[in-house]
């Protein structure tokens, strides 16, 4: 079986700022990889590149054996199999929760409205959101909004999920409910690439942790090794700062 994601030598800059300077990463099916690193280390940008929201300047990205960064690839088709969830939720504020979930399946996949709604309700029930289906996003708590955003991505039945600091905009007491959702996804075998500042969570859920530093993966390994005996000096310093900040 081919790897879920192969990232090779990916480079990306915004103007003069080089954000990714040659990232290499291979993920097997059902693997959960956590990206850690300082802000501006390129975690979010890498996820956006895998979803083709940002064009890359060099390198290539292969998903399930198909190069998605090749010319002439149907970007919409690629995105349908890769779900992404953003830090700021980005729910559609003018639609109910249910419509947020059914929009893409009905319009991009051509599923009938009734079928899409039935599937959406199943997902909402699974994540304890069924009573919110008729609410508008701004009536929900941050934690609920983020759970809706995750289920919205799942409604497209993606084979890979990208999570971009999905708990960073939440009040601390709301983080747990979102992390529980992600744990459930992991136990269901979803392939996930997660950018996170929640080190405890990364330790717990990741099959592998990658430390991103200055636009490249400096060190990677199983969480136990990265968090307790990092080899690189810069990884050590980063983790010390995290501990000093009380985040681990």
């Amino acid at each position: 079986m081919s790897d879920a994601i192969v990232i090779e030598g990916v480079r990306k800059s915004f103007g003069k700022l080089e954000v990714l300077r040659g990232v290499d990463l291979t993920m097997a099916e059902h693997e959960v990889v956590c990206l850690i690193g300082a802000s501006w280390s390129g975690k979010s940008t890498l996820l956006r590149c895998v979803n083709l929201l940002e064009p890359i300047e060099a390198g290539r990205i292969v998903v399930h054996g198909d190069e998605i960064t090749a010319r002439g690839v149907d970007v919409n088709a690629v995105r349908r199999q890769i779900g992404i969830v953003f830090q700021a939720f980005n729910l559609f504020p003018h639609m109910t929760v249910l419509r947020n979930l059914t929009l893409a399946p009905t319009e991009a996949l051509g599923v009938s409205r009734a079928e899409a709604e039935q599937q959406a309700r199943e997902l909402l029930r699974r994540f304890g959101l069924l009573d919110k289906e008729q609410e508008y996003p701004d009536r929900l708590s941050g934690g609920q909004q983020q759970r809706v955003a995750i289920t919205r991505a799942l409604a497209m039945r993606p084979s890979i999920m990208l999570l971009d600091e999905v708990t960073s905009a939440l009040d601390p007491e709301l983080v747990a409910e979102v992390l529980d959702v992600i744990r459930e996804l992991a136990s269901g075998g979803m392939t996930m690439l997660i950018a996170t500042h929640e080190m405890g969570f990364a330790k717990d859920i990741a099959s592998r942790v990658c430390f991103l530093d200055e636009g490249a993966i400096l060190e990677q390994g199983p969480p136990a090794q990265i968090f307790s005996e990092p080899r690189e000096e810069r990884t050590k310093r980063f983790l010390q700062r995290i501990i000093a900040a009380g985040r681990m």
Binding site: L53, I84, L103, E107, A108
Partner: peptide, 8 residues
């Protein structure tokens, strides 16, 4: 970005 990421 959210809409495009869903394949729209």
């Amino acid at each position: 970005a959210a809409a495009r990421s869903l394949g729209l």
